[in-house]
Design a binder for these strands. Structure first.
Lengths: 207, 207, 207, 207
DNA sequence: TATGAATGAGTATTCATTCAT
DNA sequence: AATGAATGAATACTCATTCAT
């Protein structure tokens, strides 16, 4: 964004012991970010809470931003493992959509800060993180749409995926204050909305 | 959120000259927040950019947070003036929805930081601001829904409004990076989505 | 003390109306200093509390320090009027001492901040004020001592007066937190102490 | 005083190196307070003068007030070590009083700001410090008086101690401007005053 | 003469980051 | 490798004082 492009580096641990520490720091950071807000959580605080020294923290992460990058990477890896893979259209799309949304909501429940980071719109260190997750998920959605609607133009697919992402991200916040709507209810409304949208969209864009 | 509830006060200017300054500071702040991110913009920076001294800044706003409160107040007042009032159902709902969404998108285009603040999910000073706008808008949506669906249960109305807000907030971000989808396109998709959702929702909740 | 010697000026009001304002500002300031502490009371605060503009405040007093100077002047003028004048030794010294101490304690009761300013030892704007009152009172004490002990050396008189001032200033604070000893009790102990001290002192310094 | 009771914390250093720094900062602060006045000395100023960074300053002291608290603690610990302990009445009281006063005056000579803080009467951050030292010293005086006058009522002991404290605090300022009376002289006058006062007091309160 | 809006240098405090041990 | 003491630039906010009206 500003060209100064500091090099943010993550030192991926090779030892087992280090790996545990590394992951624990990420856990602690994610939890703190969720409850206090990213800007209100210092690196010293994270390190202390994780039971390591700041020095150790900076051996793993060159930067506060590198920590976020690592967090995002882990989110994406875990999502990749836990979300259903769709390779053929033998299953009705509604089923797939429901499975994916269930997966995402479930994922958010077990991965602190996920939705908060994904929905960040304020410029700042979190912004790039949000974009990375957004683009990854949107790519997956596009793949799925292409599978189910092979004859639809790429541009339309892209638009549909972007809208879908917007809908999911927006409705994801319904579980949080001030709405505090239960997960299952949100899930149901999400499925309804997405299916209704996709159907209407495809009716219009069917070649 | 934490009960300490510092008293944030805004000194509403009475003189014309002051009113201009007051509004100008809000303009500058909103613009800076949009480009740099709330946490990266200092009060000294805002004051300097607005061509006033920090002291003057603090004559208007007791706090950095009071500035946000004032910004939110102004957003709400302006929205109240510019969004269409719906008092009867002589117009088809689709028309109303389209008019409102057009209004909101148009509003965001002319009021820097509006969508960013509205979609803030990170804990911090912006959180309360986001909630205030959210609740206000949701209230308006509920009113409209009650008008068109007088026989539907309040709980259902509330859920529908909350979902609608989620959808709009989520899709509002499509105009921003990395999607950068044109306003008119986003508007169209929003209308489709909302109408499709409401229709499906009401089919289920019709008494 | 530091050579920069800014010129602190008081604009003594000539009009009756102004005089009332002038005195009222001093009253308000003294009261605020007593309850909040000199450094915690701003000139804007004083002006507002006194119902005048800051501009008016600065027409009377060139400085915050000039205000203190004026306060001290007024203390001294009022003390000069209310403390008993001693011109001959027809009255026993104990009676005079008691009358003077009664006067001082009474004075403190009706003149906010008097004791606090007099007993200030912290360097700062109050220091000069404290010294001025101290020197004035000490001068009066010296005069009285000379009258009763005409044959004692000036140096001894000076030392005795200085000690007396120390004793009075120190015991004056007994009425305040944390001791909170009643005025009459403090008065009694002061008289006892001073008389006992002077007697012992003079026994030693009688030529 | 106002109930808001911020938690002032001191980080007592455990390493030798840190302890030296910690004490040096206190030394520097005390010296600066003495010459410039507490309110005129900033934390940055103290840190710079002590040759440490502000950050280091705040590692030791959570607050400017915590610094004062630490200073007071150190005063009290050092006084406890250097003032004579009185456990029986084998020594005449005059001797004990003289020894204690010598100790206090000597202490003030080697511990910058001691008397100034002890005699602070202005509301503000120093006020609590002053009260703490005052109460501690008064407690010691009471103990001593009880020892020498076991049959006197506690209330009378308390009043006598309070007066004694007032006398000492007041006369302590005689060594400072504008009086500048030599230590030995002040000491002598103090002893005379206190002994004369106590004698007169006890004559009256002997049961 | 009176007003009070405006000024801006100054203050306490935080926090990402470094580096000697 | 690991530690955590140390750094200092940066930030929110205050307040004595000025000056245009």
């Amino acid at each position: 964004l500003d060209g100064t492009a500091k090099e943010h580096r993550i030192n991926y641990p090779k030892q087992q012991r280090s790996l545990v520490r590394y992951n624990y720091i990420l856990d602690v950071a994610a939890t703190l970010f969720a409850s206090e807000g990213y800007e209100n959580v210092g690196t010293n605080h994270i390190a202390a809470q994780a039971g390591v020294s700041v020095g150790s923290f900076y051996r793993f992460f060159s930067d506060k931003e590198a920590l976020v990058t690592a967090l995002v990477e882990r989110y994406i890896n875990r999502l990749d493992e836990s979300l259903p893979q769709v390779t053929d259209t033998s299953v009705p799309m509604a089923t797939v959509v429901e499975a994916m949304l269930t997966g995402v909501l479930e994922f958010d429940r077990h991965n602190a800060s996920f939705a908060q980071i994904l929905t960040t719109t304020q410029a700042g260190q979190l912004a790039n993180a949000a974009i990375t997750i957004h683009l990854t998920l949107k790519g997956w959605v596009e793949q799925m749409l292409k599978l189910y609607f092979p004859s639809v133009q790429p541009d339309a697919i892209h638009l549909c995926a972007a809208s879908g992402m917007g809908i999911v991200k927006g409705m994801l916040t319904m579980t949080q204050p001030p709405d505090l709507i239960p997960f299952e209810v949100v899930l149901e409304e999400m499925v309804v909305t997405l299916m209704a949208y996709v159907e209407a969209f495809m009716r219009k864009h069917a070649s």
